[in-house]
Amino acid sequence: MVQDPQPIDAPASYLPPIEIVPTGAALGAEIRGVDLASIDDAEFQAVHQVWLDYSVLLFRDQALEDEDLIHFSRRFGTLDFAPVQETGRRFVEGYPEIYVVSNVLGADGEPIGSLGSGEAVWHTDMSYLVEPPKMSMLYALEVPPVGGETGFCSMYAAYDNLPDGLKRRIDGLTIKHDGTYNSGGYLRQGVTATDDPRTSPGAVHPLVCTHPETGRRNLYLGRRRNAYLLGLALEESEALLDELWGCATRPELSWYNNWRVGDLVMWDNRCTMHRRNPFAADSRRVMHRTQVQGQERPTA
């Protein structure tokens, strides 16, 4: 029988003492006893170190206004502005840093957010950019009674568990990260549809990267659709990518959050991928997201 994860004492490097409850999976921990709306400098330094160690952190029972979410997010760096909706409007007026992930329609019948209620496939946020965001945060305002769970997988563990022969085979390869479609399968605004990975738009990054803060190596796959390994024949690229994705997304390398209202989850976009389970279209799910800009392009 699997036992519930137990709290551990924070090492001295995490001072002041905070309660850390590892998920028991390949990544992730819950942090207890921290109010993110009033976090002080010492607590922040501790949270930052735990985030580097566990890649994904969960804080439950938070009560954050949008300005609180933005203020906490900014402690990690400059924030990206959320893209403008297809209607030409900002997601949250007065807070251009807030991106709304929701299936809810407003009083005017227009969506208040993006990604609907369907599945969002495994991906790394905005890896099609030359300098992708280093961190994303998602804060739960409304959650459906069933479904909508968010899964995370460790790209450290994905690389570490590759067979030695496969590690040698992929050493030095680069991958183009598609910018045509988002994780929900929707065509990005202003982009021409294509399903040819060799000609689709997107940035080129090393297939195996070194994390700039931890020094650990990790796979950097981005998303599967329209990905392409430069220098390989298309058939060889597709076969190798299928093999790598099969290794990276094994259940034992992942952890899922079953959302509650007041949850905030933050993840290291440089060494994780994430996905979302679908949920009933007639239920409501409202999340506010921020992203911290990357400070450098991914490097081998």
Rank of each mutant, 00 (worst) to 15 (best):
V2E: 07
I8D: 15
A10P: 12
Y14D: 14
P16A: 09
E19S: 13
A25N: 11
R32G: 07
V34Q: 08
D35Y: 12
L36A: 11
L36C: 08
L36P: 09
D41W: 00
D41Y: 04
A42V: 00
Q45S: 12
Q45I: 15
V47P: 09
V47S: 09
V47I: 15
Q49D: 13
D53G: 13
Y54S: 07
R60C: 06
D61P: 01
Q62M: 01
D68K: 00
H71R: 15
S73G: 07
L79M: 12
L79V: 12
P83W: 10
T87N: 15
G88W: 06
V92C: 04
E97P: 03
V100E: 08
V104S: 05
L105H: 09
P111Q: 13
I112G: 03
I112W: 02
G116P: 06
A120D: 05
V121C: 01
W122D: 03
W122L: 06
Y128T: 07
E131F: 03
E131P: 01
K134V: 13
K134I: 14
L138I: 15
L138K: 11
A140G: 06
E142Q: 03
P144D: 04
G147L: 00
G147P: 02
E149P: 10
G151V: 05
F152G: 00
S154L: 07
S154A: 09
Y156R: 05
A157R: 12
A158E: 07
Y159H: 12
D160L: 14
D160Q: 15
N161F: 11
P163W: 09
L166D: 10
R169C: 13
R169P: 03
I170G: 04
I170F: 03
H177I: 08
H177L: 07
D178Y: 05
T180H: 09
S183L: 01
G184M: 02
G184F: 03
V191R: 01
D195V: 14
P197S: 05
S200L: 02
V204S: 02
L207H: 12
V208G: 04
T210A: 00
T210I: 14
E213V: 07
L221W: 02
L221R: 06
G222W: 02
G222C: 03
N226M: 10
Y228P: 07
Y228M: 00
L234S: 00
L234I: 14
E235S: 15
E235N: 14
E235W: 06
A239H: 10
L241H: 07
D242Y: 10
L244S: 10
C247K: 06
A248R: 00
R250D: 05
E252H: 14
W259V: 13
D263Y: 10
V265M: 15
D268R: 04
N269M: 03
R275Y: 11
R276M: 04
N277G: 03
M287Y: 13
R289Y: 13
R289W: 12
E296W: 01
